[in-house]
């Protein structure tokens, strides 16, 4: 089953395309940052802000891995081949997550090293051994992989590529930015902290040295990982719950 999913994953171009976009966006932004940041106040973890491109590309890949199977009707062959649908979803999710974790770490470390090398040429030195920097880079890559799994979850629930991609972008990049602003003040800070982008920021910035602004609501590292793992668990559990209850037409 894993082998089947492996063949399916790598035999379409969209997989490669999504990984290229993730790498180009994340590493490209790190390089840009390294070239334009003011030498006086360089913050190494700021070089990881391009992870937002990685998150977008991974999310779309997560959607496509499953929605393309629903839209082409291949899912019927798959479910007829393996009537226990949860095995199918588990294999798909497991393989996708493994690939996204690996790719996320590669992209995230590559972005960091790119920034390090370019900044060193400008005389600004920092390295992976600095306090908490490795945790930041790992967190950045892990969060990217989680966002990809959220896309996968939407792909199973909505089954159509356009609907799932639109929902993904709407929730992750638009809704979570807009909705907290509409909430009463008492809830706003907590709501902001729990948005995917802010959780991702919290995971990618433990190595930050400069203090944050008072109105910048970000969880500390430990809780951010906890929230991310909880979101991840929900993103995998929801497809497993729904998939046996629906017809496959």
């Amino acid at each position: 089953m894993i082998k089947s999913e492996w063949i399916k994953l790598w035999s379409v171009r969209s997989t490669w395309f999504a990984l290229y976009v993730a790498a180009a966006g994340t590493i490209g932004l790190a390089a840009t940052y390294a070239l334009v940041a003011k030498a006086g106040d360089v913050e190494p973890t700021d070089a990881l802000q391009g992870a937002v491109f990685g998150q977008l590309a991974f999310g779309v890949l997560g959607v496509l891995v499953v929605s393309s199977e629903f839209t082409t009707g291949l899912i019927r062959t798959t479910f007829a081949t393996i009537p226990r649908r949860r095995i199918v979803i588990t294999a798909k999710a497991g393989l996708l997550f493994a690939v996204l974790i690996a790719a996320g770490q590669v992209v995230s470390f590559a972005a960091f090293f790119t920034a390090e090398i370019l900044l060193a040429r400008r005389g600004v030195h920092f390295s992976l051994t600095n306090h908490d920097v490795p945790v930041s880079v790992l967190g950045c890559g892990f969060c990217m992989a989680f966002i990809g799994m959220f896309g996968f979850c939407l792909g199973v629930l909505l089954r159509r590529t356009t609907a799932a991609v639109a929902t993904f972008v709407g929730v992750v990049f638009v809704g979570m930015g807009v909705i907290p602003a509409l909430l009463p003040d008492s809830l706003r800070a907590d709501a902001v902290r729990l948005t995917f982008t802010k959780v991702g920021e919290a995971m990618a910035t433990p190595g930050r040295t400069a203090p944050r602004l008072a109105n910048d609501h970000v969880l500390s590292t430990g809780p951010a990982w906890g929230v991310c793992l909880l979101y991840l668990a929900i993103s995998v559990a929801a497809p497993l719950l729904i998939v046996t209850r629906r017809d496959t037409n």
């Binding site: 089953m1 999913e5 035999s11 082409t72 081949t81």
Partner: peptide, 24 residues
């Protein structure tokens, strides 16, 4: 089974499609 939509991803080659189904 052959169900009406065919069930083949347009971006995948015939051989890769069959290999994936055979593996599953």
């Amino acid at each position: 089974m052959l169900l009406d939509a065919g069930g083949v991803h347009p971006g995948r080659s015939a051989r890769q499609h069959l290999r994936a189904v055979a593996a599953a």
